[in-house]
Amino acid sequence: MIRSFGWESVEFLIRGAGWTLLLSFMTFVIGGCFALIFALLRTLGPKPVRLAIAGFIQLVQATPLLIIVFLSFYGLSFVGLHFPPMVGAGLSLAVYTTVFLGDIWRGCIEAIPRQQWEAADALALTRMQQLRYVILPQAFKISLGPTVGFMVQIVKNTSVVALIGFVELTRAGQLLNNMTFQPFHVFLTVAAIYFAICYPMSFLSERLKGNRHVRPAH
């Protein structure tokens, strides 16, 4: 049945956008937890652990997200586990997020001057207390801009799981295109919805970065 592109279609896309947001949120929470562990282990862990994590990050960062999605989609079912596409999609996006966010946050922790560690040490704080009360609060402030900036990447990256059939915004657009044969309207609307989600975050990210980003005077 050929439908024409109307308000109903926009509603359909907005429902898809809901799934995009949910998937992005899940990805950020799960990926964020692992990213924090990675960042801490990579700055403070024993040398073998640091090397292993660095190697893993290098490998994943050198693989396209789409291939990671395919690997977890086919890989999970081959080891005999049958999950709904949501799990495969979430898993691959979380792995991807972990390595990039882990790298960003490691940079933020390393950006804290060594003297801060030494001062905290001199105040007889334990290693955990140094982290908890001195280093992480400062690193958190630095990380805000880049983190919000990366959230934009997460939202955009969720579009890739459309290719394994998970019905989020992009997949909804493809389906709608097959029903209406009005690709220009459909994908322009899809793009507009993504823009409406991402632009405020990009804007916020630049504002958050700007506070600290001292440029030489001209």
């Binding site: 934009v152 955009k156 990256n157 579009s159 890739v160 459309a162 290719l163 992009t170 657009g173 493809q174 295109n177 009005q182 690709p183 220009f184 994908f187 322009l188 899809v190 793009a191 993504y194 823009f195 991402c198 632009y199 990009s202």
Partner: peptide, 23 residues
């Protein structure tokens, strides 16, 4: 810059490949 940085590459690709023939 903002239009292209705030929409996914996949959607840009679809818009160019499927959308442009429409016009």
């Amino acid at each position: 810059v903002e239009l292209f940085r705030n929409t996914p590459l996949l959607v840009q690709l679809f818009l160019i490949f499927f959308g442009l023939p429409y016009i």
